[in-house]
């Protein structure tokens, strides 16, 4: 079975989620749990780094849709960064850049929170 891992780091009041592997209907529950924990801990400023993510299906996309409103309602956001072209194409073809800020570099996403 293909693996999925999440590594979490904090940068002041911003939490960075590093996704790795394959995010599908089987593994998306793990990402949901991470977001639930962030909300429980009142952490609403989130950057998701996709650099090591190899694959995403609609189950993965659904997790971001499920939590972005809560984060924004609490003066936070879910900003996305470091996507491969293959992953970005999926987000782009469905129109996700309408709702989500997507940056090439994690640093740019972090800076946007501090502006």
């Amino acid at each position: 079975m293909e693996e999925f891992n999440i590594d979490i780091k904090n940068n002041n009041d911003i939490t960075i989620l590093y996704l790795e592997g394959f995010l599908d209907a089987h593994t998306s529950g793990e990402l949901e749990k991470s977001f639930e924990k962030l909300i429980e801990d009142k952490k609403y400023k989130i950057v998701v780094n996709f650099e090591k993510l190899s694959y995403i299906s609609s189950a993965g996309l659904g997790v971001f849709m499920a939590y972005i409103e809560t984060m924004r309602n609490n003066n936070g956001d879910v900003k996305l960064s470091n996507m491969s072209d293959k992953i970005y194409n999926i987000f782009d073809m469905l129109g996700f850049p309408i709702l989500f800020e997507i940056y090439k570099e994690e640093n740019t996403a972090l800076e946007k929170f501090n502006q």
Partner: peptide, 21 residues
């Protein structure tokens, strides 16, 4: 999709993806 994003909808994208791709 505009309505989808404006209303923060979740799910229902699997079939549209299949048809698009």
């Amino acid at each position: 999709m505009n309505e989808y994003f404006n209303n923060f909808k979740v799910g229902g994208l699997g079939i549209p993806m299949m048809k698009k791709f």
